[in-house]
């Protein structure tokens, strides 16, 4: 049994990885084009310095968001002091708190009503991935199941510092965008997210076919209702894993091994 000591300096930096938005790459022939890059810088500077968040709180994290906006941490230093109650006037939706199935249709509608360019921050463990309430029957395991998320902030709840760090990450992302490739100036316009509906359980219209295929196959789709206790020594949680999940697990293992070896 031997384990190589891990490489400490890389360990912490590895968590915050550099990110390049796919739409940012400078188009062919425009490399070193002074005009475009200068305009981009101005354009991004102005957008990032006056990014107005939507006044929108869901749960505990909203209280920390208010604390961040109040005098001790002072969000106005980031040009964010005006929290707009109307989605039409805001650029950034901070999903602060547990997203429930009953609330999702409203959130998606609000998201659709926001004008482009629009950004979404998932603040806290719940909005990121369901958090401690993930297993609950009325809890959505992460708002990214329904609307695209730009920055995830873990923590329960994130402290004001963590939120501000997330906002700075958001600024980083804005800085990598270019006016020439921005989706929201294209003719097709921005994507409209179909509003999920409340049925026997919430369902996403985009997945109607998938759901039908399962429900009509003759057996009710229930993740694991066979009494719950595992048989034959197989842990209860791992019986129904799909191929995708197994691949992911293998990937994670490889990564851990590579890190330890490196």
């Amino acid at each position: 049994m031997s384990l190589a000591p891990p490489n400490f300096p890389d360990l912490k930096t590895g968590q915050v990885e550099s990110y390049l938005h796919p739409s940012v790459s400078v188009p062919e022939g425009l490399n070193n084009n002074v005009l475009v890059t200068t305009v981009d810088r101005l354009y991004n500077w102005s957008r990032r310095s006056s990014m107005w968040p939507l006044l929108f709180g869901l749960a505990c994290c909203a209280i920390e968001m208010i604390a961040t906006a109040s005098s001790r941490f002072d969000l106005s230093r980031f040009g964010m002091e005006v929290m707009r109650p109307s989605p039409r006037q805001s650029d950034l939706m901070i999903v602060s708190g547990t997203v429930t199935k009953k609330m999702v249709p409203a959130i998606v509608r609000i998201y659709n009503q926001m004008a482009e360019p629009r950004y979404v921050i998932a603040m806290g463990a719940c909005a990121t991935g369901g958090g401690p309430f993930k297993e609950g029957y009325n809890v959505v395991s992460g708002i990214d199941k329904y609307v695209p998320v730009d920055v995830y902030i873990p923590g329960c709840p994130p402290t004001p510092e963590a939120l501000m760090f997330g906002l700075m990450k958001m600024h980083q992302k804005v800085d990598t965008q270019s006016v020439t490739t921005a989706d929201w100036y294209k003719r097709e316009g921005s994507a409209f997210v179909p509003v999920p509906q409340l049925g026997p359980d919430i369902f996403d219209p985009r997945q109607a076919d998938l759901i039908r295929a399962e429900t009509m196959s003759g057996e009710a789709v229930e993740a694991d209702t066979g009494g719950g206790r595992a048989e034959g020594g197989v842990p209860g949680g791992l019986r129904n894993l799909g191929e995708k999940a197994k691949a992911r697990i293998a990937q994670a293992k490889e990564r851990a091994a590579a890190r330890l070896a490196g």
């Binding site: 400490f8 991935g129 510092e161 760090f165 994670a252 330890l260």
Partner: peptide
């Protein structure tokens, strides 16, 4: 607390290497 990231998976699932200090 400065853990915000652009991706959720796998960046926010910390493995042994990332957790060890």
């Amino acid at each position: 607390a400065e853990l915000a990231s652009f991706e959720r998976f796998p960046h926010l699932v910390y493995d042994k290497g990332e957790l060890t200090v």
